[in-house]
Measured scan of single mutants.
Amino acid sequence: QIFVKTLTGKTITLEVEPSDTIENVKAKIQDKEGIPPDQQRLIFAGKQLEDGRTLSDYNIQKESTLHLVL
């Protein structure tokens, strides 16, 4: 699982696999929060994550925290 922290300070927990794409993660966030993926920007280690890449591409491991910017 990974954590996604929103600007409001809320933390969302997501069940993911390293092979999941960023697009996939955004879809999971939409399921939980109702935020359309095209409004979501995910930041990890100061980098904006691209939809077509996977979590493992960015070396995002379990218990990692991503930041969600709208």
Rank of each mutant, 00 (worst) to 15 (best):
I12M: 06
G34A: 05
K32T: 08
L70G: 10
Q30H: 13
N59Q: 09
S56M: 13
E33A: 11
Q40S: 04
I60V: 08
P18C: 11
E63R: 06
Q40C: 08
T13F: 08
P36Y: 05
Q39Y: 09
L55T: 03
L49M: 06
D51L: 05
F3P: 01
L68W: 02
K10S: 08
K47M: 15
L42D: 00
Q61I: 12
L49F: 02
K28M: 14
T54F: 07
L42H: 00
L68Q: 02
L68C: 03
A27N: 12
V25I: 13
S56L: 13
G46P: 01
K28P: 00
P18W: 15
L66I: 13
V69C: 14
Q39E: 10
T11G: 03
I29V: 05
E50Y: 06
R41E: 10
P37D: 04
A45S: 09
R41M: 14
K62Y: 15
T6I: 13
K28L: 10
N59L: 07
T54E: 04
E33I: 14
V4W: 01
L7A: 13
S64C: 08
G52C: 12
V16E: 00
K62R: 07
E23K: 12
I35C: 06
T65F: 07
F3I: 07
P18G: 10
L7F: 11
A45L: 14
Q39L: 10
E15G: 07
E17V: 10
I43Y: 13
I29M: 03
Q40H: 04
E17G: 08
Q39C: 15
R41D: 08
L7N: 14
Y58H: 04
L55M: 06
S19V: 06
T21C: 05
S64N: 08
G34Q: 06
E33P: 01
L49N: 00
R53L: 12
Y58K: 01
I29A: 01
D31R: 13
I29K: 00
K10R: 12
R41H: 12
D38T: 09
L70P: 10
E33H: 08
L68N: 01
V4Q: 00
R41W: 09
E23V: 09
S19Y: 14
G9L: 03
Q39V: 11
K10L: 13
Q39H: 12
Q39D: 08
T8W: 14
T8M: 11
R53D: 05
G52K: 12
R53M: 12
D20R: 02
G46D: 07
L42T: 00
V25P: 00
Y58G: 01
Q39K: 12
L7Y: 14
K62F: 15
L42K: 00
S64F: 08
G9M: 04
V25D: 00
V4R: 00
E50L: 09
N59A: 08
I29E: 00
K32M: 11
R53K: 13
E15F: 12
L42Y: 03
Q30G: 07
A45Q: 15
G46V: 02
G9Y: 03
